[in-house]
């Protein structure tokens, strides 16, 4: 069993600020982290590794600094790590990204057939959730997105059963390998690497792959050239000009503030007040 995990290094979006004048992203001091959703994917792959003695390969496309993300994957237990890095990939949108990644996976597959590909449900910088489906479609793998649980895996029969989150419920799906799975957050709890693992990860020689290593011959399919979409404008959200009416009372006591607010709400916005429909209390009476 060979499992490949796609991870991405992303700027910690919680710490990103927008330049007040130029409206560009200010990256000063914003740390790069492993996309949090990908860690769930990695852990899920490692659990299968533990159970089925699978081999886990981590794949990351990004600049040379993304090495740190792969070292982390190695420390947690990935056996191999490949950094797909080439200036030719710059400017890629999701279609061009999935092209490059699937080309790399094909090469990995030639060395050791890939049975499962794992990815996070989306990244926190792009939030598109498109690259996973793109890879599966290109590699003709079964696609299982938003997986909240892996119910069973039968390596002999090459079958996997999962819970897939869908609108209004959970689909229990059975499919054939090879498959690509994007996992939901909270599906597992990340392990804590041992010091031995940390040292091994630090010493591990990463595979650095250029586009040629991934056997990408057609440069029109990758990077800016291979991207059907383009950003035409970047701007900050327009600030609303409203400023909250701050409720104040003479006493400043919570109960007076609350009463004033509720009275205001009921008199100024009767339409909203009408929307308040208390559910019956547990004893059956309603308010």
């Amino acid at each position: 069993m060979h499992i490949l995990v796609c991870i991405k290094q992303v700027p910690d979006s919680a710490q990103i600020r927008v330049h007040p004048v130029t409206n560009t992203i200010m990256r000063q001091g914003v740390p790069a982290i492993v996309n949090p959703y990908d860690l769930y994917a990695l852990e899920e792959a490692l659990r299968l590794k533990d159970r089925y003695r699978a081999r886990v390969t981590a794949l990351c496309m990004g600049p040379p600094q993304a090495e740190a993300a792969l070292r982390k994957a190695l420390a947690f237990g990935a056996d191999e790590a490949i950094l797909l890095t080439d200036r030719a990939f710059a400017g890629a949108d999701t279609l061009a990204t999935s092209y490059a990644l699937s080309a790399a996976i094909r090469q990995v597959h030639k060395g050791l057939p890939v049975d499962l590909v794992f990815a996070g449900k989306q990244t926190i910088d792009g939030d598109t959730a498109q690259v996973g489906p793109g890879i599966a479609t290109r590699l003709d793998m079964q696609l299982l997105t938003y997986v909240s649980k892996i119910v069973s895996l039968d390596p002999a029969a090459r079958e996997i059963v999962v819970h897939r989150r869908s609108e209004g419920g959970v689909q229990v799906l059975k499919t054939q390998l090879p498959a690509l799975i994007t996992v939901l957050e909270g599906i597992n709890e990340m392990r804590f690497a041992s010091l031995t693992d940390m040292l091994r990860a630090e010493r591990h020689a990463l595979a650095l792959w250029s586009k040629d290593d991934a056997h990408i011959d057609d440069a029109t399919k990758i990077g800016l050239k291979g991207s059907p979409t383009a950003v035409s404008k970047v701007f900050a959200p327009t600030p609303t000009n409203r400023r909250a009416e701050i409720i104040e009372t003479q006493s400043g006591q919570p109960i007076d503030l609350a009463a004033t607010l509720v009275a205001k709400l009921f008199s100024n916005r009767p339409d909203v007040a009408l929307a308040i429909n208390p559910s019956p209390t547990p004893d059956g009476s309603s308010l």
Binding site: P239, R243, E245, I246, A259, L261, V262, A263
Partner: peptide
Amino acid sequence: IFDFAHYGIVGNAMTILPALTQAFTEHL
């Protein structure tokens, strides 16, 4: 949040919330 809320109370949520619960209960 006060830049896009309609109404605001500046105070500790832990004391304002129970007061709001009470005020809404009475109003309803």
